[in-house]
Design a protein around this nucleic acid. Sequence first.
RNA 1: GCCCCCAUCGUCUAGUGGCCCAGGACGGGGCCCUCUCAAGGCCCAAACAGCGGUUCGAGUCCGCUUGGGGGCACCA
Length: 493
Amino acid sequence: MDLKPVRTRFAPSPTGRMHLGSARSALFPFLLARRTGGTFILRIEDTDQKRFVPGAEQELIDGLHWLGINYDEGPDMGGPFGPYRQTERRGIYHKYAWKLVELGHAFPCFCTHDRLEKVRQEQMKNKQNPRYDGTCRNLNFDEGRHRAASGERYVIRFKMPKEGKITTMDLVRGPSTTENSALDDSVLLKSDGLPTYHLAAMVDDHLMEITHVIRGSEWLPSLPLHSHIIRAFDWEEPQFVHLSVFLKPSGKGKMSKREAVEAIKDGHSIFVGDMQHLGYIPEGVLNWIALMGWGVPEDEVMTIEDMIARFDIHNLTPSPAAINFAKLDHFNATHIRTLRTDDLAARIKPYFLREDLAVTDDRLLKIIPLIHERLVTLDDCLTFAAWFFKESVEPKPVDLVAKNLTAAQSADIARQAYAILATLPQIYPASAEPPMRLLVERLGLSPNQVFGILRVAVTGQTVSPPLFESMEIVGKPKVLERLKKAIALLERM
RNA sequence: GCCCCCAUCGUCUAGUGGCCCAGGACGGGGCCCUCUCAAGGCCCAAACAGCGGUUCGAGUCCGCUUGGGGGCACCA
C-alpha cells in the first residue's frame, strides 16, 4: 500500500443519533490516516437548519472519544483549516458558488418552489424523469448578478453539460462512466445562503486538503456531480471510497427506526451511545464494526493498534453487510478476557453501583478471577456476582432440592455438609473441597447433586462462579448462616 | 418509472484463471473436560444465484437473467 501521509475526514451531519454506520465511516478514514502517519479531521456538516438536532454534535464527539477514534482537527479543538463547522463557513461557500457562476459552470436561478413543483408533477405524469427545466440556465450574467444583489430570492445551480460523459473513480469499485444527459442542474447554494452537501463538501475537502474521501455508498449516485464540480474549479480530485451499507440482521433491507428501538430490548443496539450502558467495551465494538466490510486475511481479533497496522483500502468489500449481534457478543467477550484484573474491576464497578450494591474494591478484586471468563458483557457481572455484595440471599426452595432426591434427603445432605464445614477453621478450596468430595462418595451421590444444594444455599442461585472459591470470599460465618437457612427452608417443604 | 451499485456456507469474509472436490471466523450440532455456567480442546454439517460465452482450464474474465441494495429534494 502507498504509505504517503494522507488527510482524511469524518464529516457527519448532526441530525440524529450516532449509529454503527457513522462509527465505521469514522473508523476507516481514521485507520488510514494513522496507518500512513497522516491527519484525521472531524468536520460538522450542519447546513440543514431544518433537520438540526441539538446535542447531536456532542453525542458524535462523545462516541468518537469512547471508541478511541481520535481526531487531530475538529470543531472542539480547532486546527489550521478551521472553522470545522459548516455554518461557520457560510461566506466561503457563497464566494465559491459565485466563482462557479463567473466561470460559466453555474447559474443563479430565480424559479419559485411552487413553479418547480408543478413542473415536476407534470414530468412525473408524462413518465419523464423529474428535472430542472432550464428556465434560468441561460440568464445573462449581469442580469443574474443584479437581480440577486437587489434582494430577489435565488439559488445557484450547477450548469450540467447537456452532452458528453464523465468517468468517475471509486477505489474499491473501479471506474464508472455516466452520461451527462442523465444528470440534473443540481442546487449548490440554497436560498437561505447556505450550501447543499454537494458544494460544501467539495469546497471543504479541497480547502482542507483532503486526499481520501471515505463515505457511505449513498453518495455513489452523486459522485459524477461531485466530479463535475471539482473539475469545474480545476481542482485536484481526492481519492473516493464508498463504504457498503449495513443491512438489518436478516439481510433484508436497512434497519428502520422501529427495529433499531426493538433491538435494545434484546440487549443490543445500533447506537454507539447505548453500547456502554449495555455492557459493551469499545475494543469489542470497534473490532465488530471493523470487520463489516473489511476482509482481514489474518487473525480477526484485533486491537485498534492491530487495525492501524493492517488497514488497507484494497481489502474493503463493496457488498452490503448484514448486522450480526452474535458476533458483537463474541468480540466483546473475547476482548474482556484480555483485560487485566484491575482494569476489568474499574470497568465493572459502575454496573454494581448502578444497582446500589455495596461494592468494595478489595472484594471486587477477589471476585474478578472467578467471573472474568464468564462475562460476555460487563453487566453480566451482576448475574454472576451481585449476590457477593448482598447481606443475605433468598434461594427458591425448589432450587435447593437436588436432582432425583427429595426435599428431606436434600436437607439431610445439607446438615451433614454443615457439620463438616463447621469443624474447619477456615473455608477455602483446599480445606473444604476434599471433605466435601468424601461426603459425596460416602453418600453414593454425584458431585453435581451435593454441590448443587450448597451452591443454591450459599449463592441463592443455580448458576454461579466456582463453589469453594466463592465460599472462601463470602467467609465461613456467612456460609454456615446461609446453610442453616437453607436447611430450614428444605424442612418446611 | 429512470439511473447507479452489489452477488462465495444462515452471517461476516478469504479467494485477483490451474495451489479450491473452495479456507477462516461467528452462529449451529456432537464429543471431551467439568460442582453449575463459562472458558478450553477435538470433530461435524453448511456456499461459488442461474444461464450462456471466452479459455486447454473459471468461484476468479465477459454478457444476459434473477435476486438484493442505494439514489433520483433549496436533506445530508
